[in-house]
Write a protein that binds this DNA or RNA. Structure first.
Lengths: 292, 292
DNA sequence: AATCTGTCTATTGTCGATAAAAGACAAAAC
DNA sequence: GTTTTGTCTTTTATCGACAATAGACAGATT
């Protein structure tokens, strides 16, 4: 096996989902644009749709023959890209314990455990190293630095610097900048989740990322925006892993976000700093609690 | 060819250099520690030293037979690791022009041009991507974002945030912290270079890196310290590439460093901020001038 | 005249294989 | 009893090969 065909499988699934609503399909380039893949992949999808009897396809004529059923889809496990699989598997190891700081990381062992080649593992580790959780000893192994208290403190220190600056920059965006609209949309989702907090508190994680990324983007600084990847991945897995008091914690964070959003809208630098600091402080505490 | 043997060649050369001074060699483990390589490599070196008649080697008995000559060394081109070669080659392309922002980067083409395999190029690009000069389009090419004015401004913005904070942290280090000694040593080199500026102004580049890294380390934050790699590589190649007015520029920077060092020693936060800001400002201007 | 399809080429992502380098362990030497 | 050497195993770094995917171009269709 050379390359995985997860791009094809994932796009195929999304295309089948599309068929649940529409009775016909657009042209190949248009479909490609919708699914975010090349025409080559679109044609592979159309070919398969024909094979499983969902579609007749001859040149421009694409006729949907029946409603899709569950069996038409590829299993979801097969649609994840290799790097996603490695990342999840690796983060589980780090956060789920059994991975002491200082431990050596063995490429071959990791590769075999996940059932993939060494090259992919190597490339993952190189990409992952910028998160500061592992470190390479050239010509030798990787060292796990671990998800420790120091790590969390160093991470949040930089985060606070970056986010305060970004928040101030946000307030300076012209009134017609699309970020203000996005902020409004985000605010609405906050209210919606709070109104049904008991059922929806788990939706917070995704919203949190969306909100803070929007703020960071206002910095217009690629290093600040890129650094948000580090924060996002840490909080993402942290939320997944540590669910104690999640309802309460998330409710509080939502309220803090709303205050923060109001401050941004006021464009008052002092208020912004206060609201931002307040929220970042409790985010840091939450993170630290999950470590000890 | 699987792996390059540049580790061996480089360590071998350093070992021959050692032989110019000493008449005998220590034990294998000790020699390994000195050269920073494993015993396996030490033994390969000893074997080769015997082959070219520089040494008799039997167990602990290692006798130097003659003084080394130039021909005993491996050519310096052969001692650079693959990643160093790629980095130089790539940076030359970016800085030496002929590389417009927005250009596509082709892995295979790059590999062929440098005469190496694609895997090495891929890994290099992944590692290099954290410098913010290139960006990946998944399943497709890399895009060169270019060494532009925006890049320099974004880089220096973060640098200023990080360095100001680090400088303040430096002032808080206890008096017996080794960093103060290192600072003193660095200061002495400054005076030495200034005293012979016409001949030694090119030594500034290395000293600059040493000084600022020391300051950044005081932050005790891995993200801040790691970010210094970005600054270092940019300034390193910038100094190499742009030599107009180098003597004058470096002399000025040396003076600024001395003021900065004095401020650190005063431990006065206000003075530190002033001196640091002043120096970073002219560093930024120098960098910007080289771009237009 | 614009867009679409058929066909072909170029490039990336992943694999297994192999030499270089690291490192483990016991026997030997001091 | 500590350090050194001999020998062996393990692991990394690099390569070339190949399927998946992107993308280019000309002819066909509206």
């Amino acid at each position: 096996m050379a390359k995985q065909n997860t791009v094809f499988k994932d796009a195929f699934n999304r295309c089948v989902k599309l068929l649940e609503q529409t009775a016909s399909l657009p042209s190949e380039p248009e479909l490609g644009a919708t699914l975010g893949v090349s025409r080559t992949t679109v044609r592979a999808i159309l070919t398969r749709l024909e094979e499983i009897g969902l579609l007749t396809w001859e040149k421009r004529r694409k006729i949907v023959l029946r409603k899709p059923v569950a069996a038409d889809y590829f299993p979801t496990e097969e649609t994840d890209s290799l790097s996603e699989i490695i990342e999840r598997s690796f983060m589980r190891r780090i956060l789920a314990g059994g991975a002491e700081p200082g431990m050596q990381i063995n490429e071959l062992e990791l590769a075999r455990e996940i059932g993939i080649g060494t090259t992919s593992v190597r490339e993952f580790l190189i990409r992952f190293s910028r998160f500061g959780l592992i470190e390479k000893r050239p010509n030798s192994h990787w060292v796990l630095k671990g998800f420790t208290r120091e790590f969390a403190l160093e991470l949040t220190e930089v985060r606070e610097m970056f986010e305060l600056r970004s928040a101030v920059a946000f307030a300076r965006l012209p009134g017609d900048h699309p970020a203000w609209q996005e902020l409004e949309a985000i605010e609405a989702v906050h209210h919606a989740i709070l109104a049904d907090i008991d059922n929806r508190y788990l939706d917070f994680s995704e919203l949190d990322e969306r909100f803070h990324l929007l703020v960071h983007r206002a910095s217009k600084n690629r290093f600040i925006v890129d650094f948000y990847d580090v924060i996002a991945i840490v909080f993402h897995y942290h939320y997944q892993w540590n669910k104690t008091n999640a309802r309460q914690r998330n409710a509080r964070a939502l309220e803090e976000h709303l205050a923060y959003i109001a401050a941004l809208r006021s464009r008052d630098a002092i208020e912004i700093e206060l609201a931002c600091r307040q929220h970042l402080k409790s985010a840091r505490e939450t993170l630290l609690q999950s470590i000890n």
